[in-house]
Amino acid sequence: MLPRSVNERLLARREGRGAMRVKAIALALALWAVGAAVAAAQVPYVPAEFLSGHRRLQGNSITFCVYEDSPTYAFDRAVAEELAMALLLEPNFFEVKPPPFRLAQEDYVEELYVLLMDHCDAMVGFSLATDTYPDWLVLTRPYYWTPYVLAVTDPDYRQLSDIPRDKAIGTRLLTLVDVEFINFMSTLPKEQRWRRFPYVSDALLVQRLLDGTIAGALMWAPALYRETGGNPEALGIRVISTSPLRTIERPVGLAVRSSDAFLRAMLDEAIAALTQDGIIDELLERTGTLGRPDR
């Protein structure tokens, strides 16, 4: 069992280092040992020059990859620090500059593989909801859930179905809510469908909502708040129901290599402890992040 609160954890750190140190050493050893034991048969083909060729030695630290431009960067990083503290490890961060948007999953898988081989033990802020990840990748339990929303400027709209069908709806391309919208529209007769304008930039999506190109914007809530300075209402933007689309929330957790099963189990335990202790709630509030802990 992991300690149950920050104070208890700090106490444990001072007083109970023996047992925890064994655990930390075991974790470090596990991290070290699995470095060379990646399931070769199922990993993507990565040219050798993409990999450093060195085994990372971690000692009593753990390194998290974090996307530096994520709308939830501050929250993800704070969670990672708490997780490290719970595991009695020193947190290190490898800040990932997100590349321009691409459309090939294979490219992303390859990139993620290189990150987890060369730079970090776990990726924070990782989406968990699909079943399309490669076999070499495993995901922790979520540390929070966060919703997709429909943003509008017209005061008459109360839900998606209020928007006239000759208007255009903007979406953040290929997000969960976009997919939901695509599939919903495929059930409608053609004349009852909205025009769907896919965008790949949250900023552009908000801009086109404000200039009237689109009547509604389906997007991730933290992104809406980031692009509106935390106050969409000040710009005349309201969040309304996505009905008749179902409410969509996205679970967010960490990604690790499947060969790091021990690490995944440790992180799962730590997430459970942080959730139970109210630490996740506290961090959501402190960082102004829209979302809820995993219940």
């Binding site: 709308p71 992303y108 993620l112 989406s127 997000t175």
Partner: peptide
């Protein structure tokens, strides 16, 4: 065709 969100709110793929 499928969505694959590696980062919440930002996806890749389109065709697996």
């Amino acid at each position: 065709p499928r969505e694959v969100e590696f980062r919440p709110g930002e996806s890749v793929a389109g065709l697996a």
